[in-house]
């Protein structure tokens, strides 16, 4: 047995990696939402002064990455890896951002779970002694996703009540071997789960089994119960998916009702267009950077489980009537004073 592995799929860190800074950049709609004042930058329009939405998404990711570095007081030369991913074909927003950075780059794809995948890998790199500082980031843009996955943006169609609204947002975190900040305590890498959902207008239900499986494994592996966490955040199951996920866990004897929050239900107010909630790589990442990270840092939250979830389909597989596989990674985070706390 590997010394830092627990149970079937959980890794623990004897020396916990520290998240020394977090930055978020969002679009105008997100800026008007309930978390609006918490984001670092809010773009005035969805083009952010660029000529295409793809360029706008890259610019937002670039701004988030630069801000995270600036907040931590680090230069490119001091950062050993840049891990990033997004929703667009060939993850161009991330590679194009990396083009302007002088940092070794690993591109990731985990759909909306990307930031979880990046945090896990970044923590492994630091814990394994391969890096001092690792920059992790992800982004999504409503209009680039809409034209890639659905219809042209000006096509007049009704949104389906179970569908989710892709968030326009980018966020970056700096993981470090030392420094002040919330720490990564444990990581459970998820398995791909497919319960046969084929409806691309219901990604929440497609991802819910993966969320339930990962949370269940995490708790079993570490011998914990939901009450050991101040909050368990799913990253972004929406209303429909959250209900399905809680139901699946309840069947396994785990009641998450008291501690579960969905980042897809935190970023917007009650707007009918949003339907079941928000989604996108940028959603869970920006909510974490803007809201959860500061609350962990101040000690308002002592220990949380962040579980970004992703739907691993493409427009092609949906047209070929394939079902939608889902994935979820759990990252357990603790506040800076965790190791010195009174029992």
């Amino acid at each position: 047995m590997a010394p830092n592995r627990r149970g079937s799929s959980t890794c623990v860190f004897p020396k916990m990696p520290v998240i020394v800074s977090a930055a978020s950049v969002v679009g105008p709609r997100e800026g008007k939402g309930p978390l609006g004042p918490l984001f670092d930058l809010v773009c005035a329009d969805t083009l952010c002064g660029e000529t295409s939405w793809e360029k706008a998404e890259t610019k937002m990711l670039r701004q988030a990455v630069d801000l995270a570095e600036a907040k931590a007081g680090l230069e490119d030369a001091e950062v050993d890896f840049f891990l990033a991913g997004d929703l667009l074909n060939q993850i161009i927003s991330s590679s194009f951002t990396a083009r302007d950075k002088d940092i070794p780059f690993l591109g990731l794809y985990g759909a909306c779970s990307t930031i979880g995948e990046a945090m896990a890998l970044g923590s492994f790199l630091i814990s394994g002694g391969f890096a001092r500082n690792v920059l992790v980031a992800s982004s999504s843009h409503h209009d680039t996703a809409e034209r890639q996955y659905r219809y042209p943006t000006e096509f007049g169609h009704q949104r389906v009540p179970s569908s989710q609204w892709t968030v326009t947002a980018a966020a970056a975190l700096l993981l470090s071997a030392q420094g002040e900040g919330p720490k990564v305590e444990a990581v459970t890498v998820g398995r791909v789960m497919d319960f046969g959902i084929t409806d691309a207008n219901d990604m929440g239900s497609a991802m819910a089994p993966a969320f339930a499986d990962t949370v269940w494994r995490h708790l079993i592996d570490l011998g914990r119960s939901p009450g050991d966490y101040d909050a368990i955040f799913s990253g972004d199951l929406g209303m429909v998916g959250s209900k399905a996920a809680l139901h699946l866990l309840k069947k396994r004897g785990i009641d998450l009702k008291e501690v579960h929050h969905d980042t897809g239900l935190m970023i917007y107010g009650m707007e009918p267009e949003i339907c079941s909630g928000a989604s996108g790589c940028g959603c869970v990442a920006s909510v974490f950077a803007a809201k959860i990270y500061p609350e962990l840092k101040s000690g308002k939250l002592k220990r949380v489980l962040l579980v970004p979830t992703g739907a691993l389909h493409s427009p092609t597989t949906c047209q070929q009537a394939e079902s939608i596989p889902g994935i979820a990674h759990a990252v357990s985070l603790v506040y800076p004073g965790w190791e010195e706390r009174e029992p």
Partner: peptide
């Protein structure tokens, strides 16, 4: 199990 789950998830649709 898949069939049961799809039925369950659909029942949560608004």
């Amino acid at each position: 199990e898949k069939e049961e789950y799809i039925k369950l998830a659909t029942s949560f649709h608004p």
